[in-house]
């Protein structure tokens, strides 16, 4: 029987509490982690012609940076702790993409940090944990 998959909505090194907690749970449950870092992106924002031209190169840089500075170190931490881990970086709306990834991977659980949910904008527009609480397809753990 294949191992259960836990999706981790990972923002970066500041989310170490979240990552450590997810690793801990994965080890106890003998699950694998799928670490997802989402760069907020809307196809409806407006760009100058110069920005349109530079977008492809910027995207390549952003993806390389996210892979090298965020995803790969997180996978290394998990692997060092004895937990099998994979990772990916995606563009779009965080809540929608984490939920979609969980569905696509057939994940058993989602782990998300509470960071930022106290800010004014989070209270007005809703935060990632609140959004996931509403649309997540699987049980979701909000790590304080």
């Amino acid at each position: 029987m294949s191992k259960e998959i836990f999706v981790v909505a990972y923002e970066g090194a500041d989310d170490s509490t979240l990552l450590n907690y997810a690793i801990e749970r994965a080890r106890k449950e003998d699950a694998t982690l799928h670490i997802v870092h989402v760069l907020e992106w809307s196809p409806y924002t407006f760009l100058t012609p110069q920005e349109v031209e530079e977008r492809h190169t910027r995207r390549k840089h952003e993806m390389t940076r996210a892979r090298e500075a965020i995803i790969e170190p997180a996978i290394a931490i998990a692997t060092a702790a004895g937990v099998e881990a994979t990772g990916e970086m995606r563009y779009g709306q965080v809540v929608e993409l984490i939920a979609a990834t969980a569905t696509a991977k057939g994940a058993a659980m989602i782990f998300v940090g509470r960071s930022g949910s106290n800010s004014i904008s989070a209270r007005v527009f809703g935060s990632v944990p609140l959004g996931l609480a509403q649309i997540a397809p699987v049980p979701t753990v909000i790590v304080p």
């Binding site: 992106w41 196809p43 407006f46 349109v52 492809h56």
Partner: peptide, 25 residues
């Protein structure tokens, strides 16, 4: 509307953005 946009290409300039940029001129 993005009906033919590959989700894997997210982060590239969308057709909407191309239209909006050209219109602003």
């Amino acid at each position: 509307k993005g009906d033919y946009s590959d989700p894997d290409d997210a982060g590239e300039v969308s057709h909407f953005q191309a239209l909006a940029t050209a219109l602003s001129g």
